[in-house]
Structures are given as structure tokens and as C-alpha cells.
Nucleic acid binder design. Structure first.
Length: 344
DNA sequence: AACAATCACAACCGCATCATG
DNA sequence: ACATGATGCGGTTGTGATTGT
């Protein structure tokens, strides 16, 4: 057991003790550890009636011997009424894997694309299930590269890796911009609140980065529209940029992005496997799925071709390679005993 | 049945960032 | 511009449940 575990904390003064500042939870009398049903009930009842307001002052008002941080965690990860619990669907697993390939361990960002799932839950699921599956099949869960690719990556794939990196950076910037907009919304929201207008509910976990105070359901007003815009819109609006990054010939772009855009349709000439993707009917996952399916090949199945050769590759092989990569991941996902039907 | 090993996930901690005065 | 407090995020741990021996 590491020395800094809870059991040892009482025995060894840590930095905060030396420096004279104590974490909120170490105040005398504050309880730690698992929540009891009574505590849950108190917290729920208080928030349903008053909203959470300041987390720092909530425990006392609610009659809880907990620190505000603990209350916030309990609420956001467990008690919120809009949390979907239970097994992850194949769809969700697919989305997590693909988003992780793009974003890395940015759980909150990943959670924005999985409605009703918390970042903590996604993180746990990744660490206990998905990461292990990828490792089992020889894929590095950090880089999402196949073992063999380490060799290949040093033989002329820099352009494609750079493309992926560029794409990830773009998505990262987009998420940050989205968060900024959400914060600005929140600012407006708070200003409304200060003008004695009721706060809009912050029910949607997808935008929990916006720390708007939560209030009872159905108490919202028009201010909800000020909350963070959905990813779907911004994503599809920026698709052309991403397509440019991917270096896809202009004449082929429409068909290639067909599955990415909820407003587009797939041409008959497109490959069947794309059509068979068990995508949601709409939403951001489609975009990521198709883009990742297309792009991941550069990382996972490159054959050491030089850049020109890659650029000249046929569309068919491009898709075939992608299909193989994600099929391998998804078949593994599908191998989960609890899981639903094969995706491809 | 008893024990050990492993799994799953809730909860905690420390740090980063943001908001405010 | 700076200090301080509040909140969010990601890494990690603790512990009950499950499985294997």
C-alpha cells in the first residue's frame, strides 16, 4: 500500500500540513468513505429543493458531515437523476474507443459525446474493460497503434501521423472553444440569476463542464438556450476543414463524408461496409466514427509506403484497411459476453 | 467451506483553471 | 496584476463482490 493512502495519511504529515493549509475533507468531524442511503437522501432532498448553490456551504445547510467536494462528486457521479447506469452498449464502447484514440485521457471531453454517462464512469470502464481488450489484441491503449506499427511508423508515415495529430489538435481546440462558449453562457446565466431570475437546470451531463447551478427539473426557462451548443452542429460545420487535413481528393470528399453528416446521404457507390456501420441515426458519434474509421488506417495498418504511394492508394484499399482496423477493435468489443450483435 | 486473487467501481486526492474582489 | 476561494479534471486508491483454487 502506498504511503499516501488514506490509512497512512493520519500517520504522516503531508505537504499541506507542513505548509499550513488543509484539504477541506480533513476538517474535524467530516466523514469520508462510502455514502449511506441516509446521506444520499439528505443530499438529494436538499438539492431538489434549493439547487446545489455553493458546494462549500451545502453540507452544513443540508445537514451532512461531508465536505463540499465530496457532495459534489456524489451528486455528479451518482445521484443526478439524468445519469444512465448499467452496462455500456456496443455503441457506447465504440464511441469511447474512437474518441480515446482522438482525445486521449480527456474523459470529460469524451463524456460530452456520451449523453448520461459521467466522465468518472467512462474512465473506470476504460480502465477496467476497454484498455485490457485493446492490450489483449496487441494494440497500445495509449497510442491505439498495433504493436507491429512501431516499426512501420518509422518508415515513412510521418505525414499521416501528422495528419492525425493535426486532427486531434483541431478537435481539442474545438472542445476548448465549446467549453469557452459554455462558460460565456454560464456568465450570462449567472447575470440573469443575479437579476433574480431562476437558474436554468444544468441537467445535461454532456455539458457538465459548465458549472451552472442545478435546479429542479422543469424549472428551466429560455436561458437553457444559452447553454453550450451541441457538438453536432459545430462538428459538421467544420467537417470540410477536417477533410482537408485528411488529404482527401476534392472529387471524392462528398461520398467520403456522407456517413459523417446527418444531413448527407450515402451514395450507392460507396462501400457496403460503411453503410453497415451500426451508427446512431444522428449525432456526433457518426462524425467521429466515420472519420476515425477513415483516418485510423494511417496509424494502424500502414505498410511502409512513402507519402506519394499512400496518396495514390485506391479508395477501396483505403477503406478496406480502415475497416480491418476497426473491425478488429469492434470484434473484440463484440466478444464481450454481454454484448449485442456484431457491428459489421 | 475457506482463503486468495481478481474485478469493478465509488470515492478520494492533488493540481489546474476559473471567477471574483 | 495579484491573491484567494471555488470548481473541474484526471490519476489513483479502497473496498465489496465475484471467481478460482
Amino acid at each position: 500500500m502506498p504511503i499516501h493512502s488514506q490509512a497512512k495519511r493520519a500517520d504522516f504529515p503531508s505537504l499541506w500540513q507542513i505548509m499550513g493549509r488543509s484539504p477541506c475533507c480533513d476538517k474535524d468531524g467530516l466523514k469520508k468513505g462510502p455514502w449511506t442511503p441516509e446521506e444520499d437522501q439528505k443530499l438529494l432532498a436538499y438539492i431538489e429543493e434549493h439547487g446545489h448553490g455553493s458546494w462549500r456551504s451545502l453540507p452544513e445547510k443540508a445537514g451532512l458531515q461531508r465536505c463540499g467536494k465530496s457532495c459534489r462528486l456524489r451528486w455528479t457521479n451518482y445521484l443526478r437523476p439524468d445519469i444512465k447506469r448499467g452496462k455500456f452498449t456496443v455503441q457506447e464502447e465504440q464511441t469511447i474507443i474512437q474518441l480515446h484514440a482522438l482525445l486521449g485521457n480527456r474523459w470529460s471531453a469524451i463524456a460530452t459525446h456520451l449523453p448520461k454517462r459521467t466522465d468518472n464512469e467512462i474512465k473506470n470502464y476504460w480502465n477496467t474493460h476497454l484498455k485490457k481488450r485493446l492490450v489483449k489484441m496487441g494494440i497500445d491503449p495509449v497510442t491505439h497503434k498495433h504493436k507491429n506499427e512501431t516499426l512501420l511508423s518509422s518508415t515513412g508515415q510521418s505525414k499521416n501521423l501528422a495528419t492525425l495529430s493535426h486532427m486531434a489538435q483541431w478537435e481539442s481546440a474545438r472542445l476548448e472553444a465549446e467549453a469557452r462558449i459554455a462558460r460565456e453562457s454560464k456568465l450570462l446565466h449567472v447575470q440573469h440569476h443575479r437579476n433574480n431570475k431562476p437558474a436554468a437546470p444544468d441537467y445535461c451531463l454532456a455539458h457538465k463542464s459548465s458549472s451552472t447551478n442545478w435546479t429542479k427539473p422543469n424549472q428551466g426557462n429560455g436561458d437553457q438556450q444559452l447553454e453550450s451548443p451541441t457538438s453536432t452542429v459545430t462538428f459538421s460545420e467544420n467537417l470540410p476543414l477536417m477533410i482537408m487535413h485528411l488529404g482527401i481528393p476534392m472529387e471524392n470528399r462528398n461520398s467520403r463524408v456522407a456517413v459523417s453528416s446527418s444531413t448527407s446521404s450515402i451514395k450507392d457507390s460507396d462501400h457496403d461496409w460503411i453503410k453497415q456501420i451500426n451508427c446512431p441515426k444522428e449525432g456526433i458519434e457518426e462524425g467521429f466514427t466515420s472519420l476515425l474509421l477513415r483516418d485510423s488506417v494511417d496509424r494502424s495498418l500502414s505498410t511502409g509506403k512513402n507519402d506519394e504511394a499512400i496518396a495514390e492508394s485506391s479508395e477501396y484499399s483505403y477503406y478496406e484497411d480502415n475497416k480491418n482496423y476497426w473491425n478488429s477493435i469492434l470484434s473484440l468489443v463484440d466478444s464481450s459476453p454481454s454484448d449485442s450483435p456484431t457491428m459489421f
